[in-house]
């Protein structure tokens, strides 16, 4: 199974050059069954990554571009009166897919944001009094621009908390960029990514990852990390239990992807920044821009043993 994961990572790597770590994190998030938030500047490959992921796993993919005038109904779907049948028929919105790319989620109004986030949490949507289940697996990759850009509605902490991970993609290194420039670049390249896995594989991996052993020593370490965020004067709010569960869940998947039957502190350290950065905020910080630094401090100050 690990070879297949590695193959999938390599396959995505052909379109997103030199970003193996981000790809693995995104896959870890997908296998853990959590939603992913990618925060970066426009044009860094957010959409490419989402596209490639969907194709590798053979998922049903849709992209929703969030704008400031987008309404909840535009995502969830509406019932329209059909004159032929003389009845209201539900026209499902773009959300009824296995993988949604919610582009620029912070450009839309809080009302629409919460419609999407509710769907993410519940795995179902309620439209006009009727509850309709979303397809399974249901996976959202949301992208957002850094909050300081004009015309954004920052997501509140309560909604950020629903994303298992937040990653940035970052500029490619010079070699990767050169390769990118040399190649005949066009958008259709994403379509060349081969499907290497099926939805069944994804579900199997998910159940396998859940069986990874967590030793008391490792849990002690995780608890010390969590406790540090709660005790420290530097941190505004400590991690919630949902946050600590997320750390453990992601660490298990990471260990599984590494081909181990047990999790080690390195697994926790690998996923911790992505899992906690968006949930932490320095006590002195009103904008919520300091999570990265705090997560790094956490790793370098809390000892493993």
């Amino acid at each position: 199974m690990q070879q297949r994961i590695q193959a999938a990572v390599n396959e995505i790597g052909t379109v997103l050059l030199g970003k193996e770590r981000q790809i693995r994190l995104a896959m870890c998030c997908l296998i853990s069954g959590g939603h992913l938030l990618i925060e970066d500047l426009p044009g860094m490959g957010k959409t490419t990554l989402a596209h490639a992921l969907a194709r590798v796993f053979g998922l049903d993919f849709n992209r929703i571009q969030f704008t400031s005038d987008l309404l909840p109904a535009d995502i969830l779907g509406v019932s329209i009166f059909e004159q032929q049948s003389g009845r209201f028929t539900f026209h499902p919105g773009p959300i009824f897919r296995q993988l949604i790319l919610a582009d620029e989620i912070n450009r839309t109004t809080p009302k629409t944001q919460s419609a999407l986030l509710e769907a993410m949490e519940e795995g179902q949507v309620s439209v006009e009094g009727e509850t309709r289940p979303l397809p399974s697996p249901f996976f959202v990759i949301a992208t957002q621009n850094p909050g300081s850009l004009a015309g954004t509605f920052p997501l509140p902490e309560s909604q950020l908390d629903r994303f298992l991970m937040r990653i940035g993609i970052g500029y490619p290194d010079p070699r990767a960029e050169r390769k990118l420039l040399e190649s005949d670049h066009d958008r259709s390249r994403g379509a060349k990514v081969q499907q290497l896995m099926t939805v069944a594989d994804l579900i199997e991996m998910r159940s396998l990852a859940a069986t990874i052993t967590l030793s008391p020593l490792l849990l002690d370490y995780v608890q010390r990390l969590i406790a540090r965020t709660r005790d420290s004067d530097e941190v505004h709010f400590g991690l919630s239990p949902r946050g600590s569960i997320a750390v453990v869940r992601a660490a298990k998947t990471w260990a599984f992807m590494e081909g181990r039957q047990h999790a080690v502190p390195e697994d926790v350290q690998a996923v911790l920044p992505a899992v906690v950065e968006h949930r932490l905020r320095a006590a002195t910080d009103a904008e919520g821009r300091t999570g990265t630094a705090l997560a790094q401090r956490l790793l370098s100050e809390v000892d493993v043993f």
Binding site: V264, Q269, S300, E301
Partner: peptide, 22 residues
Amino acid sequence: LTLAADLAELGIPRRVGEGAGD
């Protein structure tokens, strides 16, 4: 940790927060 202490004397101390594998 006794082994880590020995290695520290050799000039390779374990860093705070560094796991066994790293």
